[in-house]
């Protein structure tokens, strides 16, 4: 196509005008695309949010893959293999979105991996935890993915188009994940006393992590929170606490219906305020975990680093075949 752009005077806009136009587009509900002008704080907020989301999917594959070979039937082996595959696939989608956002900074997937290894790029608290039993694989599928569905559907209408489209794909697959988790949990809950004990013990172990997953209610709790910017620029709509409350509403009755006991005697729905009252998790522990001080943080990072370095020769070799 003939490039006619030189025939026209490019529209000269000051930074203020560009920002005003950008803000107007967001307020009109328009989607921002990768090559559109966007203010640095919007780009940087997206990079931070989506790289953490993407790398969490990739790191999240590790605790679950531990149970792939051990899954207790041929069908379970297939189901959990497909699920771990999806996690890596979600990581792929999200990293592609971030990679395009990072272009002006001349950064690539390799830089994201370096940031992960140096601790600059964090991943979700839940993936720092050990998976000790098969029931933990079920809990991850049912409740961790349940929590993830709540946070991800909250961003389906994100103002950044490529992220919204990646989330559409991801959420469609999360429906399978939720049912995969339910199926494992249901079998254990209806099983032998040992199987029932296994799932109760798993719930006891994971409850606090699940509450932490949504993040602190306010930045006063841990010192940082990006939720104000993400809401103002229509990347998400609900606050961390609203999402946590949604999780209680959707999952507490289901957990209890299976005869499981939630390990928080203070948990109750307060009719007057319309809110769930619950015991706060230890937020200093949360901070420690996402900074790499969780029970399995070092091992999981070491595993990722070892495999990444061992395979460097493959990427170098194939880079030679680029044409």
């Amino acid at each position: 196509m003939y490039d006619a752009t030189h025939l026209f005077e490019p529209e000269v806009m000051t930074e203020e005008e560009k920002l005003a136009r950008f803000t107007e587009r967001i307020e009109n509900g328009e989607k921002i695309e990768a090559d559109d002008w966007m203010p640095a704080f919007y780009r940087d907020t997206l990079i931070k949010l989506i790289s953490m989301h993407g790398i969490s999917e990739i790191m999240g594959a590790l605790p679950e893959k531990e149970w792939v070979p051990k899954a207790p039937s041929l069908r379970r082996k297939l189901g959990i293999m497909a699920k771990v595959q999806d996690e890596m696939g979600h990581g792929q989608l999200l990293l592609r979105v971030v990679e395009d956002l990072m272009k002006p900074y001349e950064k690539t997937r390799g830089d994201l991996m370096d940031d992960l290894f140096t601790g600059r790029l964090k991943f979700h608290n839940v993936f720092h935890m050990p998976t000790r039993t098969w029931a933990d694989a079920g809990t991850i599928g049912w409740l961790v993915d349940g929590a993830a569905i709540i946070t991800q559907t909250n961003m389906l209408g994100a103002s950044y188009g490529p992220y919204a489209r990646a989330l559409q794909r991801i959420c469609a697959e999360e429906v399978f994940h939720a049912q995969h988790g339910e199926s494992i949990i249901m079998a254990l809950a209806e099983g032998t006393p040992e199987q029932k004990a296994m799932i109760q013990e798993s719930l006891d172990e994971w409850w606090e992590s699940l509450l932490m997953f949504f993040g602190p209610a306010t930045k006063e709790t841990t010192g940082t929170s990006k939720q104000d910017i993400t809401i103002a620029y229509k990347i998400r709509t609900k606050t961390n606490e609203e999402l946590r409350q949604n999780f209680f509403t959707k999952y507490v009755p289901r957990i209890q219906s299976l005869g499981l006991v939630i390990p928080d005697p203070t948990l109750r729905f307060d009719e007057e305020s319309g809110q769930w009252i619950y015991a706060q998790p230890d937020w200093s522990e949360f901070k420690k975990i996402i900074q790499g001080g969780g029970p399995r943080s070092k091992e999981r990072l070491a595993l990722r680093r070892t495999s990444y370095q061992n395979n460097a020769w493959v990427r170098e070799a194939l880079a030679e075949t680029m044409a």
Partner: peptide, 17 residues
């Protein structure tokens, strides 16, 4: 399946799974 999550390239990880 032991390679899950550890392949040299994310796209290949998904495909070989």
């Amino acid at each position: 399946s032991e390679w899950l999550g550890l392949a040299p390239h994310i796209e290949e990880d998904v495909a070989s799974s």
